[in-house]
Simulated scan of single mutants.
Amino acid sequence: MSATSEIVAPADASSLVNVNMSNVMKLTSTNFLMWKRQVHALCNGYDLAGYLDGSTTAPDATLTTEGTTTANPAYKHWQRQDQLLLSSILGAISLSVQPLLSKANTSAEIWSTLTNTYATPSRGHILQIREQLKQWKKGAKSIEDYFNGFTTRFDQLALLASPIPHEDQIDYILGGLPDEYKQVTDQIAGRDTPPSLTVLHEELINQELKIQMFLTASSSIPASANLASHRGHNTRGLQQSRGNNTMSQPRNQFHSRSISRGRGYQGRCQICGVQGHNARWCSQLQSSGRGYSHSSGGYQAASPPP
């Protein structure tokens, strides 16, 4: 036996039971069916279900014996046990629902009020739930939330004595799915008999995982494309740079030839603006009828002096 297990002794005529409902889901306006099953099963396990449905009636508050009226101990015990159970039930009800029970004084009154509120087979209530089924779409919901939204309403309609046939349940669920789940929809449409809700739920979960894996893989494609584009851009830039260098080679070669001649002065001439000789040498060339020709791009003289 685990350390968290609890031994429950059945109630007898003299004992009081404080029912622990900390593990019971909080009652809301949409989960009454499952909440009711949980609470009823727990109370039945303590042999207290009669306090809920009213079958365990309250004894007379007083006893009269030989003309003498006294308090009835059985009534006092019943009252104490009923109030302990009432307190436990209130602790398992959400704050939004508790105002409905402001006038309930016994466990049976709470049970009856909740049943009349959430399990009354009124025409308007049934139509409202059926309309919710039509409007329930997956959208951004997970498959778990989407599926639970249907099953909760199916259970509510069953509780209201207006159950949805199984084939119609499948149609409702498939009808609210987006195109990404068309593969599952087509597979189910091709079957001779509709699957159970459990099988359908599993197939939709598997499809959801496939979609998530595809989206994860697709999200890395733009980065790779950008990297390839960046590399291509760099390659083109390198090629263009090399082309530019090739176009500029004549000037560089001319400069290299000037250096290779061993010319001592490598500044720019103040007269003609050409690099590689000084103004004095250029003046001497010009006075002798020679010099740098801009039209031919070279010196008329064979070689400048050092």
Rank of each mutant, 00 (worst) to 15 (best):
S303I: 14
R290I: 06
Y299F: 13
D53N: 15
G176S: 04
S22Q: 12
T117L: 00
Q286V: 12
Q300T: 15
G190E: 13
L215D: 10
P250Q: 07
R236S: 03
P163L: 02
Q183P: 07
I170R: 00
L101R: 06
W281H: 04
A49D: 04
T120Q: 10
M213Y: 08
H40E: 10
S196A: 06
D168W: 10
G298D: 13
E66G: 03
A228R: 13
W136Y: 08
L52I: 12
K103Q: 14
P163E: 05
L48Q: 01
S142L: 08
A13E: 12
R191E: 14
Y181F: 15
K137S: 07
N72Y: 08
Q239R: 04
A189R: 14
A9P: 01
A58F: 04
G124Y: 09
G298R: 15
D12A: 00
P178C: 05
K210N: 09
P194L: 08
D82F: 07
S162F: 07
Y299I: 09
N105P: 02
I126C: 04
H230A: 13
Q156R: 12
T120V: 04
Y146M: 06
T117S: 10
E203S: 05
I173W: 03
S142Y: 06
A161P: 00
P306N: 13
I188H: 02
P250D: 05
Q132H: 11
S112Q: 09
P305H: 08
P59D: 05
L16E: 07
M1Y: 11
I126Q: 05
A119K: 07
L27S: 01
L48V: 01
M21H: 03
Q270V: 13
L127M: 12
T68R: 04
A49S: 11
V199Q: 12
Y299C: 12
I143N: 00
P194H: 11
P73K: 05
I129L: 12
K182H: 11
C269K: 02
Q81G: 01
L127Q: 10
N226G: 01
I143S: 03
T235H: 04
T115D: 03
V97I: 15
V24E: 03
C272Y: 06
F150G: 00
G297Q: 01
D60K: 13
N31H: 10
I93A: 01
G149C: 09
H277P: 00
N116Y: 08
S29G: 06
Q249T: 03
V199I: 15
N31T: 14
S15P: 01
I164H: 02
R80Q: 14
Q156G: 01
H294Y: 14
F147I: 12
N18Y: 08
A217H: 07
G273A: 07
